[in-house]
Design a protein around this nucleic acid. Sequence first.
DNA 1: GTGCCTACTTCCCGACAGGAAGTTTCTCTC
DNA 2: GAGAGAAACTTCCTGTCGGGAAGTAGGCAC
Lengths: 148, 148
Amino acid sequence: MTTMKAAQKRAQAKVEYNAFLAGCPSRQLLDRISDKWVVLILCALGGDTSPGRPAAAHADAPKAMRYSELSRLLAGVSQKMLTQTLRSLERDGLLTRTVTPTVPVTVSYELTDLGLSLHHLTRGLRSWAQTHMAEVLANRENHEVGTP
Amino acid sequence: MTTMKAAQKRAQAKVEYNAFLAGCPSRQLLDRISDKWVVLILCALGGDTSPGRPAAAHADAPKAMRYSELSRLLAGVSQKMLTQTLRSLERDGLLTRTVTPTVPVTVSYELTDLGLSLHHLTRGLRSWAQTHMAEVLANRENHEVGTP
DNA sequence: GTGCCTACTTCCCGACAGGAAGTTTCTCTC
DNA sequence: GAGAGAAACTTCCTGTCGGGAAGTAGGCAC
């Protein structure tokens, strides 16, 4: 059977206080914003929609976007995930959801100041991904050769 | 994909690397780095291990860490996920894996320059999470009241 | 020999993401 | 006035993915 002598002691020692602990609130928040859809939504609402190079001082014009606009821009996102992610971001105060009771109801989402401050970081992530993509792809191929 | 007319090629070149497109490599890379374990591992290997306040940008010493050190620091990560994430990061050239054939074999991981450049961003994410945590929690409670 | 150490690997299962179809509420058309 | 249609979801089913725990190698301490 299981020898729970040192193993359990170790497991308990593991749960001592630590900045990277699951119980730390910052960890929970980090888990939330470390999500691919969150990053993409923030990039989209931050006005980071130009494909070329966001490195330039391309004034990030935060613009409100409708649900269908986001759905079209973030190719590959399911409607469920888009709704779910938007709701959680709204709940956390990163964006506002505005319903306009027009003919077919229109819903637009816009970043708050809080969301905007995080957008600067996600913009950096997207920029990094586009900048270092070739490097990463090269490393990936080298590794496939190196590990037969 | 194989038989591509010149017009199509030009159309694709026109779009450059856009992380919003599902098929774009930069999007795949963004998906990979937008992962909670990736962010935490990069923070750990970047030397961002001070629990209290990373506001002071002093703990910027990238240090090599062993598998068991990471496992202990990133409480909550399963061994499977840790191994899997480390391997993919190694494959992408973000960190190096060094095996030292000591008594029990010792494996240490260290950030490469590429991983270090990304670490600056993940550090920002962690810093943002800790800075705006209270704000987010307040918004969250307000919303629970607003949606019965 | 038995057990333990590190750094994994494998198996199983529950949870969650994705896809598609259904819902609601309006207006315009036939 | 019945039906189509449009926007923004919501619900259901299913496949995949992550977590937990047990198993593996192989040298050393007892």
